[in-house]
């Protein structure tokens, strides 16, 4: 019986993130619109877009191969699994030990690998430019992220996220230089990985940075819906990660009962709303940078992450 309940809770988490992801994207867009003094579409618009796209037929380019048709499902599966492994409303769920933070980073890598290949598949210049730049950004963002993981793991003694979240709630953490550096690195990586201003612009592919949107230019119909949903899931994943590591308050523990779970879920939604608000504020207050400034931006993130890890190698109290 308890096992069935555990499975149910795990399933709820998977469904919850899938349902919340478009809402988060809609929320960020709505806040941005208000900040620009536009009325903007409703926060529910991404759901409408998705359901419309899902029902439309797919137009495949003549030169598209089977990989182009398989990739959206693969990307979606990898990102959904990765996002579901990040603790949201409760820590220590049934399958939380399946993959640690390093594996989650690598799962994001799997999704990115296939997305970049899909960009190259049709054989157009837009897809190629997107893939090439996406991989350049990833080649700096992924090590920066792993350095952040190192910092956390040196403090918490593990790379498993539920244990990290539990550790971050204990009194021994306190304020640390290394954690501040890790937070900064993670935020910078999150901005770059989600194709946000100042690295990329999620609203258009017709700009000189042309990264994510250029890569998925050839997709249409249900494939595009899955790609968009995956992008929303990725944004949700990063905000959940920030919440779970740096603001783990209010998270229920495994087996705490439905009331605690509901409370945890409410707090989780509040965290997401706050995160989305901050993201929109940041995006509207900064200008986009040239594509060959991105390497300096991410190089700084990598150095910050490395510095955090180095401090901990030198002394556990920093």
């Amino acid at each position: 019986m308890a096992l069935i309940a555990d499975y149910l809770v795990q399933g709820c988490q998977m469904l919850l993130i899938l349902l919340l992801a478009p809402l988060l994207t809609g929320w960020v867009r709505a806040v941005k619109a208000r900040l620009l003094r536009r009325r903007g579409p409703s926060v529910l618009q991404p759901y409408r877009d998705l359901s419309k796209l899902l029902r439309k037929e797919v137009v495949l380019a003549d030169s598209a191969s089977w990989l182009f048709r398989v990739a959206p499902y693969l990307i979606f599966a990898a990102l959904w699994v990765a996002a579901a492994l990040v603790p949201t409303f409760a820590s220590g769920l049934l399958f939380s030990w399946t993959a640690d933070l390093i594996a989650i980073v690598a799962l994001l890598g799997t999704a990115r690998f296939f997305l970049a290949l899909a960009g190259l598949d049709v054989g157009t210049s837009f897809g190629g430019i997107g893939s090439s730049r996406e991989m350049m950004i990833a080649s700096l963002a992924e090590p920066a992220m792993l350095m952040m993981v190192f910092t956390l793991s040196l403090l918490a003694g593990t790379t498993e996220l539920s244990s990290v979240a539990r550790f971050m709630l204990t009194a021994e953490v306190g304020l640390r230089v290394s954690l501040a550096l890790a937070l900064l690195a993670l935020v910078m990586v999150a901005i770059a990985e989600n194709a946000r201003i100042p690295v990329d612009n999620p609203a258009t592919h017709l700009e000189l940075t042309m990264v994510h949107e250029a890569m998925v230019l050839e997709y249409s119909g249900r494939h595009l819906a899955l790609i968009e949903l995956s992008a929303s899931l990725k944004l949700l994943l990063y905000l959940s990660l920030l919440g779970c590591i740096f603001a783990p308050w209010g998270m229920a523990t495994a087996g705490a009962g439905p009331v605690a779970y509901l409370g945890g879920a409410a707090i989780y939604v509040a965290k997401l709303a706050l995160g989305g608000l901050l993201l929109a504020l940041f995006e509207t207050s900064i200008a986009k940078m040239r594509v060959f400034r991105v390497d300096q931006f991410l190089g700084a993130a990598l150095m910050l992450g490395l510095l955090g890890a180095l401090l901990l190698f030198v002394s556990r109290s920093l």
Binding site: L54, E57, V58, L60, S63, Y73, V122, T124, L217, E218
Partner: peptide
Amino acid sequence: LSGFTAAFLIHRLASNAARRGPAWDC
């Protein structure tokens, strides 16, 4: 599981139509 469930549900409930055409490339 999640990949195949998504593919099954989408093909079953939404749409499985596909058409070939020249590449869009903006």
